[in-house]
Amino acid sequence: MDETTAPPDDLEYRNPPGTRVTYRARQRRTDHTVWLGLALHLPSFLISFALVLTAAVFLDVLLGVPVWLPTGLWAASGALAFHRPTERLIARHLFHLHRPLPAELATLAPVWREVTARAGVDGGRYELWVEDGDGLNALAAAGHIVAVTKRALRDLPTSQLGAVLAHELGHHTSGHSWSGTLGWWYSIPGRCAWRVLSRLKPRLRHAARGASLTALTVVVILTGYAAFATLRVTYGLPLLLLAVPCLAAAVGRRAELRADAHAARLGFGHSLALTLRERLAELSAAQGPAARSRPGARLLSHHPDLGTRLEHLEKFL
């Protein structure tokens, strides 16, 4: 499609099939948000490790299984998050994605080819997926998953679809996707334990109602003393865990802004800004004044609000 016939909002395909494209020698890198994110996942990793170690000790006592075996297998299991068959299971059963149908692939593949060619990245290393969603959304996960919603494929012009894909490619090439996947993977034992405790909460409340006031007072005093003793011995360091969700959310917001910058540097800044403005107008029309989230919710959100993203994009336009 030449420039004289292409509509203003259409993507010009400068790298058709068969054209020679030079790939960068270093296709991925890691920025500071990756290392900060991994550091903030350390507490959940340690909690999960303690749970796995406890289970390993029980297996050793009951069945004679060496303690190092289950703990070692768990420590090495993170590699499965980048194993292609495991990634496909994650895509299908966790994110509920499907591989593009022929008509969807006909729209998606040339845009992805253009985006990756501009970035000097081998697009064949990644797998394209589609989500049956009504939102204008996309995601990058594990080591090779790139997905967009059906609505994005249906409603977005190719230039805006390219901007969305360039944003997700930025998450991959900057290391945000693999670091987030590792953090999620190694926190699974801790999250499972928390879910079990949440289900036991009604029974604990029922047991507390049947307990005497003296017994409850003793439990509260002992718990408070144990907490105070722990804080005193550790110089209050466990209190820092209270700040981890806020810090992790701040790192996530920074990663989103860096992915926006990546898309803008590839020439998709105007298209991405247009997409964000349309999304902001849609939210404002649907929710009215409630479209602006509360400060507390913004503090814990891993995505910056659309106005902030547009403000940071201005310097690239």
Rank of each mutant, 00 (worst) to 15 (best):
M1P: 13
T5A: 11
P7N: 08
D9R: 01
Y13P: 02
N15H: 15
P17M: 13
P17S: 08
T19Y: 11
R20Q: 01
Y23S: 02
Q27K: 07
R28P: 00
D31P: 07
L36R: 15
G37P: 11
L40W: 05
F49G: 15
L53F: 14
V67I: 15
V67F: 14
L73D: 10
A76F: 01
S77L: 00
A81N: 00
R92A: 15
H93R: 09
H96I: 11
P102A: 13
A103R: 12
L105Y: 04
A106K: 08
L108K: 12
R113L: 14
T116I: 09
A119I: 11
A119P: 11
A119C: 10
V121P: 12
D122P: 04
G124S: 13
W129R: 02
A141L: 05
H144N: 08
A152C: 05
L156H: 04
L156S: 04
E168L: 07
H171T: 03
S174R: 11
H176K: 13
S179Y: 09
G183R: 15
W185E: 10
I188S: 07
R191V: 06
L197W: 00
K201V: 01
R203V: 14
R203I: 12
R205F: 06
R205P: 00
R205W: 04
A207T: 04
R209P: 00
G210H: 14
A211Y: 06
A211E: 15
S212K: 02
T214N: 12
L216P: 04
T217A: 14
T217W: 12
V220A: 15
T223P: 04
G224P: 00
G224I: 10
Y225M: 13
L231I: 11
Y235T: 05
P238A: 15
P238Q: 13
L247Q: 10
A249K: 05
R254P: 02
R258T: 07
A261R: 05
R265H: 12
H270F: 05
H270R: 14
L272R: 07
R279P: 01
R279N: 14
L280V: 02
G288N: 01
G288W: 05
A291L: 05
A291C: 15
P295F: 05
G296C: 05
L306G: 14
L306W: 07
R309N: 07
L310V: 02
L310M: 03
L313Q: 03
K315D: 07
